[in-house]
């Protein structure tokens, strides 16, 4: 892959949290790239570092967290050395924006939709009120909402409508990259499907590159062109939609087991399989491969050495000793 294809490149990103209990290695040496116009899925159980990774991309890691290493290249330029001011003026929202988890419940209840959206737009753009209003209506139409919604208050709107407003707000400054953190989790199935369709349409229309985070492999199958699987702060598998969900199936035992634990509607199974145990405490992660205590195929080597990310076929990488041949 030429670098010109990649709109975002992350190299050896490390994010640690310095807590009283010790250092939490929340994101530990992660590298990946995002191509122009693709949707990259980021999956894993809660606490595996999905949200921390993307907060790193926005340089919004909350204290006591810190980016302790690596590079984040947006359009070839590393954003880690940038100051907070530069981030705010040039990068955040303008190049890369985010739909936060649960953001639809964080709209100010005492402001009308117009007022909250106006606030955002005037903070970043130096334009007249009437122009800003035009712009708001434009974006509301884009996400499939009627114009008269600007006079309403958040409590008058359904969850799906609020999520659309949050998405519209994230698009105001015409970013190239949009991160969606669990945008469908608290919604009903029908609304979920509508939001997924909306994200797909917007991606095509505006030429966006999307990072889509969820813990649900079934949702990811509907949206992601490529998939990143994380476990305990580590990348364990990267592959295309076809490589993960196709006939070959995933290669890493964790992805494989997670996929088997995902119930399928049109298949009657007697017993769903599951992964025994719980994800590890990241203050003191297991030695070697972090998944080995829960892995049924763990070998001696897995307990001692950390597996490197290796390519099993083009565009398909995994970190597992089982597939490592010297």
């Amino acid at each position: 892959m030429e670098d010109t294809d990649n709109i975002l490149k992350v190299e050896n990103l490390k994010i640690n949290f310095f807590t009283r209990k010790g250092i939490v290695y929340a994101v530990d040496d992660i590298s990946f790239s995002l191509k122009k116009g693709e949707t990259l899925g980021l999956v894993g159980e809660s606490g595996c570092g999905k949200t921390t990774t993307v907060l790193g991309l926005m340089k919004m890691v909350p204290t006591p967290g810190e980016i302790t290493g690596g590079r984040i290249l947006i359009g070839g330029k590393d954003i880690i050395p940038l100051s907070e001011n530069e981030m705010r003026q040039k990068v955040r929202w303008e190049k890369i924006s985010m739909v936060f988890q649960g953001a639809m419940n964080c709209l100010t209840p005492v402001y009308t939709i117009e007022k909250q959206m106006m606030e955002t737009i005037q903070e970043h753009k130096n334009i007249e009120r009437f122009q800003a209003k035009k712009c708001i209506i434009n974006y509301l139409n884009l996400v499939g909402l009627p114009e008269d919604i600007i006079r309403r208050y958040p409590h008058e709107l359904s969850g799906g409508m609020k999520q659309r407003i949050v998405i519209a707000t994230a698009l105001f400054l015409e970013p190239e990259i949009v991160i969606c953190d669990e945008p469908t989790t608290a919604l009903d199935v029908v609304v979920q499907a509508q939001i997924i369709n909306l994200i797909k349409r917007l991606k095509k229309k505006l030429g966006l590159s999307v990072i889509f985070i969820t813990h649900d492999l079934a949702t990811e199958a509907e949206v992601a062109d490529r998939l990143l699987v994380m476990y305990a702060g580590k990348l364990v598998e990267i592959g295309t939609n076809e490589q993960i969900y196709g006939n070959g199936g995933p290669v890493h035992p964790y992805t494989e087991k997670l996929l088997k634990a995902t119930p399928r509607l049109h298949e009657k199974v007697e017993e769903l399989s599951f992964i025994p145990g719980t994800p590890p405490d990241l203050v003191d992660p297991p030695s070697g491969c972090r998944f080995h205590p829960r892995c049924s195929e763990a070998m001696e080597r897995c307990k001692k050495d950390e597996p490197p990310l290796i390519e099993v076929e083009p565009e398909h990488q995994i970190a597992c000793w089982r597939n490592y041949h010297e």
Partner: peptide, 20 residues
């Protein structure tokens, strides 16, 4: 409609828009 809206872990759907 509810059944149509459920996501299934099957490949090859990332480019199509599902009608509910």
């Amino acid at each position: 409609a509810l059944i149509a809206a459920v996501c299934e872990p099957i490949s090859g759907k990332s480019n199509t828009i599902k009608e509910i």
